[in-house]
């Protein structure tokens, strides 16, 4: 190793950069932690709020979901939830599904489902927020 370092014109860091297993993995890891951190207060707020409104009728739900502060928080909650969920399910699939074909199909299905459900949820919130 020391011998090779001596002969190479490149620094040791330049020679190993881009090698190894990490590559883009840190982005996945970091995104999962950031969304987790955001979801702690958002989840507690949501659970306490809907528990306090248990059994609400449609008018009460529309008024609550559509109020400015609540709709902003709901869009944040939905975004962070689906981002976090698809990152987590991706890791579970990668760990337990060993057939490459099944793994690929499952990963794509999870990503598509997460985007579909997230956009549908955000659309519903915004529709009520803008009085649709």
């Amino acid at each position: 190793m020391a011998d090779k370092t001596f002969r190479s014109m490149r620094t040791p860091l330049a020679r190993v950069r881009g090698l190894g297993s990490a590559k883009e993995g840190v982005h996945h890891w970091w995104a999962q932690r950031l969304t987790a951190l955001a979801l702690v207060p958002l989840t507690l707020w949501f659970v306490v709020s809907v528990a306090g409104l248990a059994g609400m009728d449609h008018a009460a739900a529309v008024a609550w979901i559509g109020s400015p502060a609540v709709s902003v928080l709901l869009v944040l909650l939905v975004t962070a939830t689906f981002w976090h969920a698809q990152l987590g399910v991706q890791v579970v699939i990668e760990d337990y599904v060993h057939s490459e074909a099944v793994k690929l199909v499952a990963l794509i299905a999870v990503k598509f489902a997460a985007v579909l459900l997230a956009i549908a949820s955000i659309f519903a919130v915004l529709r009520l927020a803008f009085g649709g």
Partner: peptide
């Protein structure tokens, strides 16, 4: 984690029901 990911269907359904109108929301509730 996997269970909660599946459970998000419930959240989306509930929000869409509220946005769809009183009848759909009454069904969900």
């Amino acid at each position: 984690g996997v269970g909660l990911a599946a459970g998000t269907l419930l959240l989306t359904w509930w929000l869409l029901a509220a946005a769809s109108g009183p009848e759909a929301f009454a069904t969900a509730q």
